[in-house]
Design a protein around this nucleic acid. Structure first.
Lengths: 257, 257
DNA sequence: TCTCATTGGTCTAACATCAGTCCATTGATT
DNA sequence: AATCAATGGACTGATGTTAGACCAATGAGA
């Protein structure tokens, strides 16, 4: 007979003896999102869309890439072939060959943003709160801990890169800026989670026209975040980041209204 | 010839044209941590160790559990058989049968904590900062948004459960309290990440003796966190959570000194 | 012009995982 | 004592995935 030694609150809906559903759901959530092929395609597309491999850039050699992704070379090649057939990459043989990212992705048509937002549904709110938690937390850790000279330099370089970006490069460099903040916090789990959530929002972000007015606005906010981080002021960093992210969140949520 | 249209800062170490390594590493990280069998065992052990299924409690039926974990029933059964052979679960056939968690896990011997901490190495710092980001972010979101009556009730129930816990139940109920904070923030990604990081720290936590003095100290801090959250005061919630987590972090980091 | 290191292309045999089906057992309920 | 719904146990055939070895092409550099 089960002893059932424990708390019992308002949890009647639970299918088994333990906790409330959301926690159980979190622990007993699916072990894998799909098969190896699908997940590999997803990752490679993420690398392209996030600009980790820029247009014209080359992916690591198949053997290296397969090892990095923890997938057999055959599975990787199937994924690459899918991207090739979709026109996202171009493959060249021989030494100095490799898998190259083809030109910039076509600009999504207007109305695409709304459709995608509706597709995401509740996942949009999920991603937006998760993003805020991660990025706000990252800048606070960063501001509290302080940066090395090399880190300051990298951060400033990313900042000027966004500010001086051509319109077609803007999203990529904005992504780079935000993920750099996360990565400088020094936790690889944090970096991975930030990259993941950015990826989820990225299609939506890309579907929004890049307006000069918004860019200027973001530039000021980016500047404020960097200044607070470099000044070692966690509170200011938090406030500046919240303000910046709330702006984007409001914009995205607008497509659901 | 690659166009290489983009920023180029102090990133010479990168193996390919794109970004600095940590971001590329995050996007091109392994698609899967292990085979389905291993990951399933990991999850089931997590459910036991986190107390999602308490001692004497029953796991969902194999068919349901397999569906939840996104794994075939055969793979799930192999994992369950492994847990059974390790003595963690007991399987009974027939109606009202199922897979039951056997008695409480044996208390780890002293010195175990240090060994585990050394095993984790840099992953410990990773987990600790990630945890802080997630949980601090969660309480801020929660305090800022406010709670429904049912949520207040659940949170208070978890709090009193920890406070009145028998020593052998303390860790389980402490876990429940912390994860409830994360789950009330309303982002399933956040809940999953919090459960994941707690799982990573859990062996370490369990290897630390539960001292009355520490419990009393934690109780005060838990109280402060809940009060701030219920009062809708994000700043107070943040400060109280940081203080609480720093205490635990210092304790754990102590095993590495 | 030739070399050759590096890269993509291909194949095989072994193993992992899957969906689906049917059987065996149990014990609360009738 | 008999019923029977829910549960674990076992099997099959199909598909996904892997490691490793070997071939083919390329073009910068000697």
């Amino acid at each position: 007979m089960p002893t059932d030694a424990g708390e019992r609150a308002s949890e009647s809906a639970s299918a088994f003896e333990g906790w409330s559903d959301p926690t159980a759901d979190a622990v007993l959530r699916p072990v894998r999102a799909g098969n190896a092929f699908e997940e590999t395609v997803e990752r490679l597309m993420a690398a392209i869309k996030l600009g980790v491999v820029p247009p014209g850039g080359r992916f690591p050699a198949e053997r290296d890439l397969a090892a990095r992704l923890g997938v057999s070379r055959i599975t990787l090649r199937e994924a690459l072939r899918a991207l090739q057939q979709a026109g996202h990459v171009e493959v060249r043989r021989g030494r100095f060959g490799g898998t190259f990212v083809t030109g910039p992705l076509p600009a999504p048509e207007p109305g695409e943003a709304r459709r995608r937002a509706e597709d995401m549904g509740p996942a949009l709110d999920d991603a937006l709160t998760f993003r805020q938690v991660l990025e706000v937390g990252a800048v606070q850790v960063l501001a509290a801990r302080g940066l090395t000279d090399a880190q300051r330099e990298l951060l400033l370089a990313r900042l000027t890169a966004v500010d001086t970006a051509a319109p077609e490069d803007y999203r990529r460099l904005d992504t780079a800026f935000h993920l750099t903040l996360a990565e400088l916090a020094g936790s690889s789990s944090l970096t991975a989670a930030a990259a993941d959530v950015r990826m989820r929002l990225n299609d939506l972000l890309n579907a929004i026209p890049v307006l000069d007015r918004n860019i200027a606005h973001s530039a000021v906010q980016h500047q404020a975040i960097v200044e607070a981080v470099l000044a070692g002021d966690p509170d200011a960093a938090r406030l500046a980041t919240i303000e910046h992210l709330e702006g984007t969140a409001a914009l995205l949520r607008g497509f659901l209204a």
